[in-house]
Amino acid sequence: MSLLSVRNLSVAFPTQNGWFQAVEGINLTVNPNEILAIVGESGSGKSVAMLALMNLLPPQARITCDELVLDGKNLLQLTATERRRLNGGTVAMIFQEPMTSLNPCFTVGYQIDEAVKTHVGGGRKERKEQVLSLLESVGIPDPARRYDAYPHQMSGGMSQRAMIAMALAGQPKLLIADEPTTALDVTVQAQILELLLKLQQQFQMGLILITHDMGVVAETAQQVVVQYAGQQVEKNSAYELFNHPHHPYTAALLSALPERALPTGLLPTIPGLVPGQHNRPQGCLFAPRCAYQQARCQTEVPALAQQQQGWIRCFYPLETETML
């Protein structure tokens, strides 16, 4: 049985000019101990979808969903309080900005202890030992000293490690990492990613990794979802997706990787911008930027359909093998 199953999740926000559809009909399945990567440009609705899953969106957001099952529990039937209790326990999340995600007024130890207290319990002394061992397992040197450190006394990488320790405190079955390395120094990025993968193996967690680093995806994920303007455009196993991208957007993303740069030394780019609220195309959302677009693409909306090896939202999926 899958750990997480999401069917037709949509999120809209009210704006002065009506509803803005941030996420449109997302389907996700994560198996236990599996890594699913979600890639896409900024504004493609990756984070919003995850926050909707955690029920962390502001109350004015309109969330609709046909099915939302986590670890055998139907989240749609739970009250807000019951869903809140799952947060940090069954499902935990780490965020993009570790420096602002920790409360500046409390010590790191206190903030991790809160999670332990909420989800594991135990006496003061046991909990402290638990927190220290968590700090140790995320590779924070001298945990006893770091326990009493305030967030401003720690580097970005250290803060992200503390955030990971906090997420692990409730022994989650699913960990959502929302661009966990984007805000960090390049040298630290690899370390944090490596740590996440190690812990995922160690604790046998499902992991949803949101990123725009295709290189990271290739190395880590089993399943990949490519998202564009709030829609999923392609879903496939990592191997298939990288070797046989079928959606023109996926193909364009992959060919923009520096490793795949053309012999001329120029990086191919995708012309244009992700459509916003006011310039959403009538047909396929990617059509205006697509090198392969046809007349039909501008008037009809393609559905996400099972084609060839995976799920693709395109009338004319690419068949040619691209070179790796």
Binding site: R84, F95, G170
Partner: peptide
């Protein structure tokens, strides 16, 4: 952001507001 973190931890709204935010 740290308010979102506090909610993501599963803390009650009362605790988030009276401890994390108020402080």
């Amino acid at each position: 952001d740290y308010i979102r973190t506090a909610y993501a931890k599963g803390l009650s709204p009362t605790r988030v507001i009276m401890v994390h935010a108020l402080r």
